[in-house]
Each structure stands twice: as structure tokens, then as C-alpha cells.
Amino acid sequence: MAGSAVFEPPGYAHVSLDTSNGHLRMDAREADYAHFVRTRTTALLRSAYLLTGDQHLAEDLVQEALARTHRAWARLDRPENAEAYARKVMYHAQVSVWRRPRVAEILPADFQPDRRRGADDPADAAVERLVLRRALLTLSARQRAVIVLRFFEDHTEAEAAQLLGVSVSTVKTQTGRALDRLRTLLPDLRVLTEVPEGGR
């Protein structure tokens, strides 16, 4: 367009200089993306933390998901599609790493569940939280993903299967194996002592 120039200062949103009114204005699409990132990053980071067990790795994972979403932004019809797209990228990125997924390291010697009772005690709850983190990190990437999808994000088995790009039976199998593994590692964690109910 005559009379306008477009530039992209590194690290900032796409900005257009519209000389017709003398004001800088952010490209509307880029502004929508910036709003999406700044309102949904925390939620994505929470899931990513459960997947990786590490703040920095979680940030790397969410960064990749947000970057891919940025690349696809023009193709996403509605803002609500963006989060679903970002989450799908995130889960695929985390489970596609073959053999040695990027998660926080956990050593066998670190794994010493606290035997104290009284889970309602805040201190015990903190211990339980850390023990669960360690236990999650011993799972395979896909097993961890199904646990997070089913029990943190409250997706149905069908939704989890769709997000991961696998069959519902794979989700059932992976969930069962994951819970079996967690039961072995966390015999005192009451939450895992019973067989989960079937898919919703």
C-alpha cells in the first residue's frame, strides 16, 4: 500500500506504520496472537511441567508449541482453535522423541517415597506431590501424556486419542500400564490403589 511501511523489530509483534493517520498500529492478527500467548501460556506451562518435570524443559516445550501455532495462525479460524492446536503440537512434540525423551533426570536413589501417614497434612501433601513428580518421570512419554490428558486436563479417552493421534485402545492400554507402574512405585499413595473406571 502506498504511504505505508512494514517492519519487524526482532522480538516484537508485527507492526505496521500507517502514515495516513500517523499512528503505529499492531497488525490485528499479530495482536490476537500476542493476546493468546499472554493469556494461555501459564495453562500450557502447567501441562508441560507435568509432561517434563522441569521448568526449563516445560518452557522449551511450550515455546515450540507456540512457535508452531504462530506459523499456523492464519489457518486457525477461531482463537479457541489455537489452544487446541498448541496443545496438540505440545503433546506430539513430547511423545515423538524416540527412546530418550527430554524430561528432568530422576535417579533410582532419589526415589524414596515417604512412609508417613496423614495426607491431609500440608507437609505430607508436599511430599506426596514430589513423590508423584518423580513417579511420573519414570513413565514413558506416552504413558505420562495419557495420565496428564485423562487426569489433569480431564479429557475423555476418545479426546486423548484424538489429541495424541492414536487409537482409543492405545490410550486405554497406556493408561492401564501407567497406573500399574505408579501403583508399583507409590503403594502408599491412596489415590492409585484402585483400578480406574472405564472411559467416559
Partner: peptide
């Protein structure tokens, strides 16, 4: 039991610290 698992996962997720990833995401893009 499932509610408890969910609560524990939510509690664990609280460890994640909020961060502004906009610049990093655009740079990576």
C-alpha cells in the same frame, strides 16, 4: 480416588512458574 489424583496433579502443576514466552515463541517461529 480419582478426584485425589486430579488434585495432586493440579498441586504439582502449580510448581510451574508463569513466564512470558511471547518473544521466544515469535523468535523461534
Amino acid at each position: 480416588e480419582h478426584d485425589r489424583l486430579r488434585a495432586t496433579l493440579r498441586d504439582l502443576a502449580d510448581i510451574a512458574e508463569p513466564t512470558d514466552l511471547y518473544d521466544r515463541a515469535v523468535h523461534r517461529s
